[in-house]
């Protein structure tokens, strides 16, 4: 009973702070409303017995939102990011789209034939969830993850101008020149 109340309160808080993201007039507040919303979702996940996933959500979303704060404020519409600004564009169109999507989702929730719970909840729900999501494809997904990560790193290496390989040649054996940013190891 108590856990049901807590879960519903967290869910309501998650939605409310999600709405705040579009109501507040500062990038910083929008970012941290979103973080609040995601932390509430993490609480709901923990409440459902998936404590590992919940705690990892807290970890990842906190770091992600902190980094996001940097990028949002650096690169968004208002160059300074410091002044009050509106968080929404095309208000009417997006309201219509959101409304339609919400109706679609709610219809889905109400119409779908949910399975009846059978047996007892597993001892390690996280493991069971992972197995049912990935199953025999675990190795494929791990490899895919590494491939994606390698792509990101190579993308950055290719995109950076004035990096080590530009300044010192492909074998890193050309003369030593100071880089555009401080802090290079081995030039």
């Amino acid at each position: 009973m108590l856990s049901a109340v807590v879960l519903h309160a967290l869910a309501a808080l998650a939605v409310a702070s999600g709405v705040l993201v579009f109501v507040v007039d500062s990038m910083a507040r929008a970012t941290f409303s979103l973080l609040t919303s995601l932390l509430c979702v993490a609480g709901v996940v923990i409440g459902l017995g998936l404590d590992y996933l919940g705690v990892v959500t807290v970890l990842m979303m906190t770091i992600e939102m902190a980094v996001m704060a940097v990028f949002m404020i650096m690169y968004m519409m208002n160059p300074a990011g410091l002044m009050p600004m509106t968080m929404v564009h095309n208000t009417r169109g997006s309201a219509v789209l959101c409304g339609l999507l919400f109706v679609l989702l709610v219809t889905g929730v109400l119409l779908i034939p949910w399975p009846e719970p059978r047996g007892r909840p597993p001892r390690d729900a996280t493991r069971e969830l992972g197995m049912s999501l990935m199953g025999p494809q675990m190795l494929t997904m791990m490899t895919l993850g590494m491939a994606l990560f390698a792509t990101i790193v190579s993308g950055v290496v290719l995109a950076v101008r004035g990096g080590r390989y530009d300044r010192r040649g492909d074998g890193l054996d050309a003369g030593r020149e100071p880089g555009p940013s401080r802090g290079d190891v081995g030039g």
């Binding site: 590992y52 705690v55 807290v58 906190t62």
Partner: peptide
């Protein structure tokens, strides 16, 4: 003694990122 205590510690310590940034940002 949470079953994921190490991850918990890591997550709470990450909250310090948000805390310091917010404290730095807040005073304008």
């Amino acid at each position: 003694d949470l079953p994921d205590g190490v991850v918990w510690f890591n997550a709470m310590e990450a909250l310090a990122w948000a805390a310091v940034w917010l404290t730095g940002w807040g005073p304008n």
